[in-house]
């Protein structure tokens, strides 16, 4: 059965990911960037990030913007994670394709599965935005993993590194609201 993941665990993992990418870099401030279109599912993480001094959070109007900003930051060598809701994935497929896939720009996404039923596999969800999320990523061959509890946080650094290695998009899907 899936469990909610504590925000502190996710943010500590973000810090580790950013530190690893910043190792040896001239610039250390901020430690890393979060580009976000606010996701209800991950709102506790966003609230906790508001209190962080070393991670810079930038809120966008749309997920298309998030993709462009993430690309610009990556080009300059900055560590960056994009946090969106599944609805935002649907809304930004063109820039996912044009920037991250065709442009070979690494973008790592944390995607919240708002309204996912706790007793259902996401692929069996009654909610279309939950049900089609992974198949949509599969259509574009975007590697993805599920964050279904605290034991799954290792996927965050793994898929972040994978986005850099494959020079394209990867995603971790947040199964339940974070706490």
């Amino acid at each position: 059965m899936p469990e909610s993941v504590p925000s502190s665990l996710i943010i500590d993992t973000y810090r580790d990911v950013f530190r690893a990418e910043r190792a040896g870099a001239r610039r250390q401030d901020p430690l890393g960037w979060i580009i976000s279109v606010p996701d209800t599912h991950q709102k506790s993480v966003l609230a906790a990030l508001d209190k962080e001094r070393d991670i810079r959070v930038l809120t966008c109007s749309t997920e298309d913007e998030a993709n462009g900003i993430a690309a610009g930051l990556w080009i300059t060598g900055e560590p960056v994670i994009v946090m969106i809701q599944h609805a935002g994935l649907y809304a930004s497929v063109n820039t996912l394709r044009g920037i991250s896939m065709d442009g070979r720009v690494p973008i790592f996404y944390m995607i919240g599965l708002l309204s996912r039923e706790k007793d259902k596999d996401p692929l069996e969800s009654r909610q279309s935005m939950v049900r089609f999320c992974e198949p949509l990523l599969d259509v574009f061959s975007v590697p993805h993993a599920r964050l279904e509890g605290p034991d799954d946080v290792h996927y965050i650094p793994e898929y972040y590194r994978l986005s850099r290695e494959r020079r394209g998009p990867t995603a971790v899907l947040v199964g339940l609201p974070t706490i």
Partner: peptide
């Protein structure tokens, strides 16, 4: 927004 990311 590509420009914004580069500027930042």
């Amino acid at each position: 927004t590509l420009g914004l990311g580069l500027a930042l």
